[in-house]
């Protein structure tokens, strides 16, 4: 069976990398004695798959993880046992059974929402709001993006799905909904860096918090847990 869970990564463990957090979850699952399934081959790995990697330093209240189990177990039991074994800073928020053949989270999730706190020393609230409005009004916003495979100029404007700024003197809070996953992935710090570059202002990103991961389908935003193929549910409501 497959159980999909929603986890939080709190500020106390924001300095733990995504890979290390995955390792910690793996160990928690073993301590909990959950009947996790293993991959085949010389180095069998437990079948635990994250929807999306989270950068070091970023907190989140919406990390989705699929667990493939080799025996049936109630979702309530799964939640109870795993909760006891999670390290401080990792919280299990909700879980549901999903169809065994449900597509991989990683391939489904295509949008992510964030809260970003940034500082812009010496700038008034009004100045910041106006500059942000101009920035968003542009049809194209190019950034230089370097990945393992290629270096290119990328227009990130179409990847900013929604944005709302609450400005204040010398900074503000940005609520961003950005394209994520294999169809184009934009990180919030890239948006702010482009904004800083555009304005020529010295700004610093103070805090990034992921508030949601979504499957955008037919113009609607679904969370991976209310996705129609989900079956059984436990824990807090979405």
């Amino acid at each position: 069976m497959k159980i999909r869970a929603k986890l939080a990564k709190d500020a106390t463990i924001r300095f733990i990398s995504h890979l290390d957090m995955a390792g910690a979850l793996e160990k928690a699952v073993r301590r909990a004695g959950l009947p996790i399934a293993y991959s085949e081959g010389f180095t069998p790995r437990p079948k635990i798959n994250f929807a999306s990697a989270l950068a070091l330093g970023v907190t989140s209240e919406a990390e989705y993880v699929d667990f493939e189990l080799k025996e049936r177990i109630s979702v309530a039991e799964f939640v109870r046992r795993l909760k006891e074994q999670l390290p401080r800073g990792m919280r299990l928020l909700a879980a549901r059974e999903v169809a065994a053949g449900a597509p991989a989270l990683m391939s489904e999730v295509n949008a992510a929402s964030y809260l970003v706190e940034a500082r812009l020393p010496g700038r008034s609230s009004r100045e910041i709001a106006a500059a942000w409005e101009d920035f968003l009004a542009r049809e194209t916003i190019y950034i230089f993006k370097e990945t393992k495979h290629k270096r290119r100029d990328l227009n990130i404007r179409p990847l900013i799905l929604k944005a709302r700024l609450t400005p204040r003197a010398e900074g503000g809070t940005w609520e961003l909904l950005l394209r994520a996953g294999s169809t184009g992935n934009l990180r919030p710090e890239e948006v702010l860096a482009a904004f800083f570059a555009e304005t020529g202002w010295e700004g610093t990103v103070e805090r990034i918090h992921r508030t949601g991961l979504y499957i955008e389908r037919w113009g609607k935003l679904l969370t991976p847990l209310v996705e129609p193929r989900a079956l059984e549910e436990a824990g807090e409501n979405e």
């Binding site: 793996e26 928690a28 699952v29 073993r30 301590r31 437990p46």
Partner: peptide
């Protein structure tokens, strides 16, 4: 050891 750590 294995129970308390979860090592593989």
């Amino acid at each position: 050891l294995l129970k308390s750590t979860g090592y593989g």
